[in-house]
Protein backbone atom coordinates (compact mmCIF):
# COMPACT_ATOMS: atom_id res chain seq x y z
CA UNK A 1 0.00 0.00 0.00
CA UNK A 2 2.83 2.36 0.97
CA UNK A 3 4.52 1.62 -2.37
CA UNK A 4 1.34 2.42 -4.28
CA UNK A 5 0.95 5.75 -2.45
CA UNK A 6 4.62 6.50 -3.14
CA UNK A 7 4.19 5.64 -6.81
CA UNK A 8 1.13 7.89 -7.11
CA UNK A 9 3.04 10.69 -5.37
CA UNK A 10 6.02 10.27 -7.75
CA UNK A 11 3.65 10.20 -10.73
CA UNK A 12 2.12 13.51 -9.63
CA UNK A 13 5.58 14.99 -9.11
CA UNK A 14 6.79 13.87 -12.55
CA UNK A 15 3.61 14.79 -14.43
CA UNK A 16 4.08 18.34 -15.66
CA UNK A 17 1.74 19.93 -18.18
CA UNK A 18 3.43 19.34 -21.53
CA UNK A 19 1.25 21.62 -23.58
CA UNK A 20 -1.59 24.07 -23.11
CA UNK A 21 -2.80 23.12 -26.58
CA UNK A 22 -4.59 19.79 -26.37
CA UNK A 23 -7.08 18.31 -28.79
CA UNK A 24 -8.68 15.08 -27.65
CA UNK A 25 -11.05 13.14 -29.89
CA UNK A 26 -14.51 12.26 -28.56
CA UNK A 27 -14.86 8.64 -27.45
CA UNK A 28 -16.59 6.22 -29.78
CA UNK A 29 -20.13 5.29 -28.62
CA UNK A 30 -20.60 2.16 -26.48
CA UNK A 31 -21.83 -0.01 -29.35
CA UNK A 32 -18.71 0.76 -31.40
CA UNK A 33 -16.25 0.32 -28.51
CA UNK A 34 -16.10 -3.47 -29.12
CA UNK A 35 -14.61 -2.85 -32.57
CA UNK A 36 -12.08 -0.22 -31.47
CA UNK A 37 -8.43 -1.31 -31.21
CA UNK A 38 -7.27 -1.39 -27.58
CA UNK A 39 -3.56 -0.64 -27.93
CA UNK A 40 -1.81 2.30 -29.52
CA UNK A 41 -1.60 0.82 -32.99
CA UNK A 42 -0.94 2.43 -36.34
CA UNK A 43 -3.96 3.41 -38.44
CA UNK A 44 -3.63 0.43 -40.80
CA UNK A 45 -3.24 -2.00 -37.88
CA UNK A 46 -6.24 -0.43 -36.16
CA UNK A 47 -8.31 -0.63 -39.33
CA UNK A 48 -7.38 -4.26 -39.80
CA UNK A 49 -8.36 -4.96 -36.17
CA UNK A 50 -11.75 -3.26 -36.70
CA UNK A 51 -12.42 -5.34 -39.85
CA UNK A 52 -11.32 -8.62 -38.19
CA UNK A 53 -13.49 -7.96 -35.11
CA UNK A 54 -16.50 -7.02 -37.24
CA UNK A 55 -16.16 -10.20 -39.33
CA UNK A 56 -15.78 -12.36 -36.21
CA UNK A 57 -19.03 -10.90 -34.79
CA UNK A 58 -20.99 -11.47 -37.99
CA UNK A 59 -21.83 -15.16 -37.43
CA UNK A 60 -25.23 -14.76 -35.64
CA UNK A 61 -26.51 -12.31 -38.28
CA UNK A 62 -25.33 -14.60 -41.07
CA UNK A 63 -27.11 -17.59 -39.50
CA UNK A 64 -30.32 -15.57 -39.06
CA UNK A 65 -30.22 -14.22 -42.63
CA UNK A 66 -29.51 -17.72 -44.02
CA UNK A 67 -32.51 -19.08 -42.08
CA UNK A 68 -34.81 -16.46 -43.64
CA UNK A 69 -33.46 -17.18 -47.12
CA UNK A 70 -33.87 -20.94 -46.72
CA UNK A 71 -37.46 -20.36 -45.57
CA UNK A 72 -38.06 -18.23 -48.68
CA UNK A 73 -36.71 -20.98 -50.94
CA UNK A 74 -38.87 -23.54 -49.09
CA UNK A 75 -41.98 -21.36 -49.60
CA UNK A 76 -41.16 -20.97 -53.29
CA UNK A 77 -40.71 -24.72 -53.77
CA UNK A 78 -43.96 -25.41 -51.90
CA UNK A 79 -45.87 -22.86 -53.98
CA UNK A 80 -44.43 -24.32 -57.21
CA UNK A 81 -45.60 -27.80 -56.19
CA UNK A 82 -49.06 -26.46 -55.22
CA UNK A 83 -49.38 -24.57 -58.50
CA UNK A 84 -48.50 -27.72 -60.37
CA UNK A 85 -51.14 -29.72 -58.50
CA UNK A 86 -54.05 -27.20 -58.55
CA UNK A 87 -54.43 -25.17 -61.72
CA UNK A 88 -57.76 -23.54 -60.76
CA UNK A 89 -56.83 -21.73 -57.52
CA UNK A 90 -53.69 -20.06 -58.87
CA UNK A 91 -54.82 -16.52 -57.83
CA UNK A 92 -55.32 -17.58 -54.22
CA UNK A 93 -51.99 -19.38 -54.21
CA UNK A 94 -50.29 -16.29 -55.66
CA UNK A 95 -51.80 -14.14 -52.92
CA UNK A 96 -50.83 -16.62 -50.21
CA UNK A 97 -47.29 -16.82 -51.63
CA UNK A 98 -46.91 -13.01 -51.54
CA UNK A 99 -48.24 -12.89 -48.00
CA UNK A 100 -45.90 -15.68 -46.87
CA UNK A 101 -42.83 -14.01 -48.42
CA UNK A 102 -43.82 -10.64 -46.96
CA UNK A 103 -44.33 -12.15 -43.51
CA UNK A 104 -40.94 -13.85 -43.66
CA UNK A 105 -39.12 -10.72 -44.80
CA UNK A 106 -40.91 -7.86 -43.08
CA UNK A 107 -39.60 -8.51 -39.54
CA UNK A 108 -35.87 -8.79 -40.36
CA UNK A 109 -36.21 -5.89 -42.82
CA UNK A 110 -37.91 -3.74 -40.18
CA UNK A 111 -35.16 -4.45 -37.63
CA UNK A 112 -32.47 -3.73 -40.25
CA UNK A 113 -34.13 -0.44 -41.21
CA UNK A 114 -34.17 0.51 -37.51
CA UNK A 115 -30.50 -0.52 -37.27
CA UNK A 116 -29.62 1.56 -40.34
CA UNK A 117 -31.48 4.62 -38.98
CA UNK A 118 -29.74 4.22 -35.59
CA UNK A 119 -26.33 3.93 -37.30
CA UNK A 120 -27.01 7.13 -39.24
CA UNK A 121 -28.02 8.89 -36.00
CA UNK A 122 -24.88 7.67 -34.18
CA UNK A 123 -22.58 8.69 -37.06
CA UNK A 124 -24.19 12.10 -37.19
CA UNK A 125 -23.90 12.58 -33.41
CA UNK A 126 -20.26 11.46 -33.45
CA UNK A 127 -19.54 13.84 -36.33
CA UNK A 128 -21.02 16.72 -34.30
CA UNK A 129 -18.49 15.98 -31.53
CA UNK A 130 -15.49 15.26 -33.76
CA UNK A 131 -15.75 18.17 -36.20
CA UNK A 132 -15.22 21.01 -33.67
CA UNK A 133 -12.05 19.29 -32.37
CA UNK A 134 -10.67 18.86 -35.89
CA UNK A 135 -11.66 22.42 -36.75
CA UNK A 136 -9.83 23.80 -33.70
CA UNK A 137 -6.75 21.66 -34.49
CA UNK A 138 -6.68 22.83 -38.13
CA UNK A 139 -7.17 26.45 -37.03
CA UNK A 140 -4.24 26.06 -34.61
CA UNK A 141 -2.17 24.86 -37.55
CA UNK A 142 -2.93 28.05 -39.47
CA UNK A 143 -5.87 26.86 -41.56
CA UNK A 144 -8.44 29.26 -40.13
CA UNK A 145 -10.33 29.86 -43.39
CA UNK A 146 -10.17 26.22 -44.51
CA UNK A 147 -11.31 24.88 -41.14
CA UNK A 148 -14.26 27.28 -40.88
CA UNK A 149 -15.37 26.49 -44.44
CA UNK A 150 -14.92 22.73 -43.95
CA UNK A 151 -16.78 22.73 -40.63
CA UNK A 152 -19.69 24.83 -41.90
CA UNK A 153 -19.96 22.74 -45.08
CA UNK A 154 -19.71 19.35 -43.40
CA UNK A 155 -22.08 20.27 -40.57
CA UNK A 156 -24.63 21.63 -43.04
CA UNK A 157 -24.48 18.61 -45.33
CA UNK A 158 -24.53 16.23 -42.37
CA UNK A 159 -27.60 17.95 -40.90
CA UNK A 160 -29.38 17.98 -44.25
CA UNK A 161 -28.48 14.35 -44.99
CA UNK A 162 -29.43 12.98 -41.56
CA UNK A 163 -32.71 14.95 -41.61
CA UNK A 164 -33.54 13.70 -45.10
CA UNK A 165 -32.73 10.14 -44.04
CA UNK A 166 -34.83 10.37 -40.85
CA UNK A 167 -37.81 12.25 -42.22
CA UNK A 168 -37.91 11.31 -45.90
CA UNK A 169 -35.89 8.25 -46.87
CA UNK A 170 -36.77 5.99 -43.91
CA UNK A 171 -40.56 6.58 -44.25
CA UNK A 172 -40.19 6.29 -48.04
CA UNK A 173 -38.44 2.94 -47.56
CA UNK A 174 -41.49 1.63 -45.69
CA UNK A 175 -43.81 3.07 -48.36
CA UNK A 176 -41.61 1.48 -51.02
CA UNK A 177 -41.87 -1.94 -49.35
CA UNK A 178 -45.68 -1.59 -48.99
CA UNK A 179 -45.91 -0.66 -52.67
CA UNK A 180 -43.70 -3.64 -53.61
CA UNK A 181 -46.00 -6.02 -51.72
CA UNK A 182 -49.08 -4.37 -53.25
CA UNK A 183 -47.53 -4.61 -56.75
CA UNK A 184 -46.82 -8.28 -56.19
CA UNK A 185 -50.46 -8.88 -55.21
CA UNK A 186 -52.12 -6.74 -57.90
CA UNK A 187 -50.05 -5.74 -60.89
CA UNK A 188 -51.36 -2.18 -61.23
CA UNK A 189 -49.53 0.35 -63.41
CA UNK A 190 -50.12 3.25 -60.99
CA UNK A 191 -48.67 1.30 -58.06
CA UNK A 192 -45.65 0.33 -60.13
CA UNK A 193 -45.09 3.96 -61.07
CA UNK A 194 -45.33 5.03 -57.44
CA UNK A 195 -42.93 2.27 -56.38
CA UNK A 196 -40.43 3.32 -59.04
CA UNK A 197 -40.86 6.96 -58.02
CA UNK A 198 -40.15 6.12 -54.35
CA UNK A 199 -36.99 4.26 -55.33
CA UNK A 200 -35.88 7.04 -57.67
CA UNK A 201 -36.52 9.73 -55.03
CA UNK A 202 -34.41 7.90 -52.42
CA UNK A 203 -31.51 7.24 -54.80
CA UNK A 204 -31.63 10.76 -56.23
CA UNK A 205 -31.53 12.39 -52.76
CA UNK A 206 -28.46 10.40 -51.67
CA UNK A 207 -26.60 10.75 -54.97
CA UNK A 208 -27.26 14.47 -55.34
CA UNK A 209 -26.20 15.29 -51.78
CA UNK A 210 -22.98 13.32 -52.18
CA UNK A 211 -22.18 14.99 -55.53
CA UNK A 212 -22.89 18.47 -54.16
CA UNK A 213 -20.81 17.76 -51.04
CA UNK A 214 -17.85 16.50 -53.11
CA UNK A 215 -18.12 19.59 -55.33
CA UNK A 216 -18.25 21.87 -52.29
CA UNK A 217 -15.13 20.23 -50.82
CA UNK A 218 -13.22 20.59 -54.09
CA UNK A 219 -14.06 24.29 -54.38
CA UNK A 220 -13.38 24.96 -50.67
CA UNK A 221 -10.02 23.20 -50.88
CA UNK A 222 -8.86 25.39 -53.74
CA UNK A 223 -10.16 28.76 -52.47
CA UNK A 224 -9.65 28.60 -48.69
CA UNK A 225 -6.43 26.56 -49.04
CA UNK A 226 -4.91 29.39 -51.10
CA UNK A 227 -6.09 32.03 -48.58
CA UNK A 228 -4.54 30.13 -45.65
CA UNK A 229 -1.29 29.45 -47.50
CA UNK A 230 -1.02 33.20 -48.27
CA UNK A 231 -1.71 34.10 -44.62
CA UNK A 232 1.00 31.70 -43.40
CA UNK A 233 3.44 33.13 -45.94
CA UNK A 234 2.63 36.69 -44.77
CA UNK A 235 3.26 35.71 -41.12
CA UNK A 236 6.61 34.16 -42.08
CA UNK A 237 7.55 37.37 -43.90
CA UNK A 238 6.61 39.44 -40.85
CA UNK A 239 8.75 37.20 -38.63
CA UNK A 240 11.75 37.40 -40.97
CA UNK A 241 11.49 41.21 -40.81
CA UNK A 242 11.84 41.23 -37.00
CA UNK A 243 15.09 41.52 -34.96
CA UNK A 244 17.16 38.36 -35.74
CA UNK A 245 17.10 36.88 -32.21
CA UNK A 246 13.42 37.63 -31.62
CA UNK A 247 12.59 36.52 -35.16
CA UNK A 248 14.41 33.25 -34.56
CA UNK A 249 12.57 32.68 -31.27
CA UNK A 250 9.17 33.37 -32.85
CA UNK A 251 10.00 31.30 -35.88
CA UNK A 252 11.02 28.31 -33.71
CA UNK A 253 7.91 28.68 -31.56
CA UNK A 254 5.66 28.90 -34.63
CA UNK A 255 7.28 25.79 -36.12
CA UNK A 256 6.75 23.93 -32.84
CA UNK A 257 3.09 24.97 -32.79
CA UNK A 258 2.56 23.93 -36.42
CA UNK A 259 4.22 20.55 -35.88
CA UNK A 260 2.48 19.76 -32.58
CA UNK A 261 -0.93 20.93 -33.89
CA UNK A 262 -0.37 18.80 -36.99
CA UNK A 263 0.55 15.75 -34.90
CA UNK A 264 -2.46 16.20 -32.62
CA UNK A 265 -4.75 16.76 -35.61
CA UNK A 266 -3.40 13.56 -37.19
CA UNK A 267 -3.99 11.60 -33.99
CA UNK A 268 -7.52 13.00 -33.53
CA UNK A 269 -8.30 12.36 -37.20
CA UNK A 270 -7.01 8.78 -37.12
CA UNK A 271 -9.03 8.02 -33.98
CA UNK A 272 -12.06 9.71 -35.51
CA UNK A 273 -11.74 7.69 -38.72
CA UNK A 274 -11.48 4.43 -36.77
CA UNK A 275 -14.42 5.42 -34.54
CA UNK A 276 -16.60 6.30 -37.54
CA UNK A 277 -15.69 3.01 -39.24
CA UNK A 278 -16.39 1.13 -35.99
CA UNK A 279 -19.86 2.68 -35.71
CA UNK A 280 -20.62 1.86 -39.34
CA UNK A 281 -18.97 -1.50 -40.02
CA UNK A 282 -21.15 -3.80 -37.84
CA UNK A 283 -24.52 -2.63 -39.21
CA UNK A 284 -23.09 -2.37 -42.74
CA UNK A 285 -21.90 -5.99 -42.72
CA UNK A 286 -25.20 -7.16 -41.20
CA UNK A 287 -27.27 -5.35 -43.85
CA UNK A 288 -24.75 -6.35 -46.55
CA UNK A 289 -25.11 -10.04 -45.65
CA UNK A 290 -28.88 -9.83 -45.83
CA UNK A 291 -28.59 -7.96 -49.16
CA UNK A 292 -26.28 -10.52 -50.77
CA UNK A 293 -28.23 -13.50 -49.46
CA UNK A 294 -31.51 -12.02 -50.71
CA UNK A 295 -29.93 -11.43 -54.12
CA UNK A 296 -28.80 -15.07 -54.19
CA UNK A 297 -32.25 -16.23 -53.02
CA UNK A 298 -33.90 -14.15 -55.75
CA UNK A 299 -31.62 -15.81 -58.31
CA UNK A 300 -32.48 -19.30 -56.98
CA UNK A 301 -36.21 -18.48 -56.81
CA UNK A 302 -36.02 -17.15 -60.37
CA UNK A 303 -35.22 -20.70 -61.50
CA UNK A 304 -37.86 -22.51 -59.46
CA UNK A 305 -40.50 -19.87 -58.63
CA UNK A 306 -42.83 -17.40 -60.30
CA UNK A 307 -41.91 -14.00 -61.73
CA UNK A 308 -43.83 -12.01 -59.07
CA UNK A 309 -42.22 -14.03 -56.29
CA UNK A 310 -38.71 -13.33 -57.61
CA UNK A 311 -39.53 -9.66 -58.17
CA UNK A 312 -40.76 -9.26 -54.58
CA UNK A 313 -37.58 -10.80 -53.13
CA UNK A 314 -35.51 -8.61 -55.47
CA UNK A 315 -37.46 -5.56 -54.26
CA UNK A 316 -36.67 -6.41 -50.64
CA UNK A 317 -32.99 -6.83 -51.55
CA UNK A 318 -33.29 -3.44 -53.30
CA UNK A 319 -34.52 -1.97 -49.98
CA UNK A 320 -31.45 -3.50 -48.31
CA UNK A 321 -29.29 -1.92 -51.01
CA UNK A 322 -30.91 1.41 -50.23
CA UNK A 323 -30.10 0.95 -46.54
CA UNK A 324 -26.48 0.18 -47.46
CA UNK A 325 -26.35 3.33 -49.57
CA UNK A 326 -27.92 5.34 -46.74
CA UNK A 327 -25.44 4.29 -44.04
CA UNK A 328 -22.55 4.30 -46.53
CA UNK A 329 -23.27 7.86 -47.64
CA UNK A 330 -23.33 9.26 -44.08
CA UNK A 331 -20.14 7.38 -43.18
CA UNK A 332 -18.42 8.46 -46.40
CA UNK A 333 -19.35 12.08 -45.72
CA UNK A 334 -17.74 11.90 -42.27
CA UNK A 335 -14.66 10.03 -43.54
CA UNK A 336 -14.06 12.38 -46.48
CA UNK A 337 -14.44 15.50 -44.34
CA UNK A 338 -12.11 14.05 -41.66
CA UNK A 339 -9.49 13.28 -44.30
CA UNK A 340 -9.85 16.85 -45.65
CA UNK A 341 -9.28 18.21 -42.13
CA UNK A 342 -6.25 15.91 -41.73
CA UNK A 343 -4.79 17.03 -45.03
CA UNK A 344 -5.03 20.64 -43.84
CA UNK A 345 -3.27 23.54 -45.50
CA UNK A 346 -1.08 22.57 -48.42
Amino acid sequence: MRRIILLIFIAFMVATPVSAMEFTPPEAPDGAQVYMPEDNQTFSEGLWYVIKTAISKLQPSLTEASGVCLSLIAVTILVSILQGLTESASAAIKLAQTLAISMLLILPTNSLIALGAETVRQLSEYGKLLLPVLTAALAAQGGTTSSAALYAGTATFDAVLSSIISYVITPLLYIYLCLCIACSMVSHGMLKNLRDFAKWAMTWCLKTLLYVFTGYLSITKVISGTVDASAIKATKLAISGAVPVVGGLISDASETILVSAGLMKGAVGSYGLLAAISIWIGPFLQIGCQYLLLKMTAAVCGVIGSKENTALISDFSGAMGMLLAMTGTVCLLLLVSTVCFMKGVS
Binding site: F23, T135, A136, A139, T144, S147, A148, Y151
Partner: peptide, 10 residues
Protein backbone atom coordinates in the same frame (compact mmCIF):
# COMPACT_ATOMS: atom_id res chain seq x y z
CA UNK B 1 -20.42 27.23 -34.60
CA UNK B 2 -17.56 27.08 -37.13
CA UNK B 3 -16.34 30.53 -36.09
CA UNK B 4 -16.47 29.51 -32.42
CA UNK B 5 -14.46 26.31 -33.07
CA UNK B 6 -11.89 28.22 -35.14
CA UNK B 7 -11.59 30.91 -32.46
CA UNK B 8 -11.03 28.27 -29.75
CA UNK B 9 -8.31 26.55 -31.83
CA UNK B 10 -6.60 29.81 -32.74
Amino acid sequence: DADAAVASGA
